[in-house]
Design a protein around this nucleic acid. Sequence first.
DNA 1: CATGAATGTTTCCAGTGGAAATATAAATGC
DNA 2: GCATTTATATTTCCACTGGAAACATTCATG
Lengths: 195, 195
Amino acid sequence: MSTAKTYHHGNLKETLITSGLDILREQGLAGLSLRNCAERAGVSHTAPKNHFGNLAGLLTAIAARGYQQLTAHMQRDLSEDASRIERRNAAFQGYVEFALAHPALYELMFSKHKTNSGDPELLAQVTASFVILRDASEGLDWDKSDKPDADLRAQMMLWSLVHGFAQLSVSGKFDKDMMRKLDILDVMPDFQYRS
Amino acid sequence: MSTAKTYHHGNLKETLITSGLDILREQGLAGLSLRNCAERAGVSHTAPKNHFGNLAGLLTAIAARGYQQLTAHMQRDLSEDASRIERRNAAFQGYVEFALAHPALYELMFSKHKTNSGDPELLAQVTASFVILRDASEGLDWDKSDKPDADLRAQMMLWSLVHGFAQLSVSGKFDKDMMRKLDILDVMPDFQYRS
DNA sequence: CATGAATGTTTCCAGTGGAAATATAAATGC
DNA sequence: GCATTTATATTTCCACTGGAAACATTCATG
């Protein structure tokens, strides 16, 4: 691999993904076009076809990378022996912070039609992110009812809660009063752990 | 107003909005283009400019109509003397049902960049929808902590919960087990009312 | 070293939103 | 009642988009 200008790029697949992430940061989702991304990587606009098939394929790879980063961000600064509460706080806060810090990428990750939502690599990264949330909320005594499937319901509710909070924050639907309280740990009820 | 083909349409503004809603239903958000919408209304692709300025203006009007319908749907089948629990159930369930029944419209309504999010008419309809949710959750004894701004926090959390649930359902992020439990009232904890 | 596979380029096409100039109809003023 | 202004819609043009197809170059493998 060299940086000299050769006919074959040498690392195009990876370069296209990072170019895409850069464009999302600088120009938002609307600015992320095939041609824009290819130009930034220094190739013609049809070169990505070899690696990703089409635009949706490229966006899928970028979104998958986004989930990878989200997973990492939810685990940031956690030592091996972090407590359950520390892990839970890091995961919840990390999720919301990530959405606010990378709104365009977040929008792409949760857009239904821009990506190939059935792509195995994407699905794997989505699952990895969700597993962090699920593990962090395990054992939370948040519902005292005796409905069945308590664990499954708890997972759905907590993911919904965190995701909805992030989504409404990023999309600006919260009103002015609400925007002053964007720390999810501050807004969330004091869920305690069982046992 | 006549249905005969005249140079002046006579009811173009309204027709464009309903055409847009039809296209969203039939072809999804990706199919909703200025030209597509104009053709369906029987005018040239630049005609909408007089009424909505540009594409974003048209999409803004369509989204506002969407919030209007959402508000109505959250209040469906409610008699004057409906109980708080009935109103809450109708609002929560109506919100999720609406998202699942009109996924493309819902996507447009909560997309940050496709609409003019500062538009007064849009903001008014967004607020109207939120007020339904807020009223329906008023008095819910959902958090026993003594943190300040309990009402504001409760509103944010419940909207987050319902919106996140709808969003994750529509976008297909819930896994197979979760997709079998898409009734939010069944998944939600048994929040009780105070007093 | 030759041949096939992988990787990029060039060229073309249909589609998009929008600007600008123009055409038509409606509304208003005298 | 007629002329002028205003509102509404069309036509034409442009830059941009994703993708198909044919071609060029390099790599990898026998």
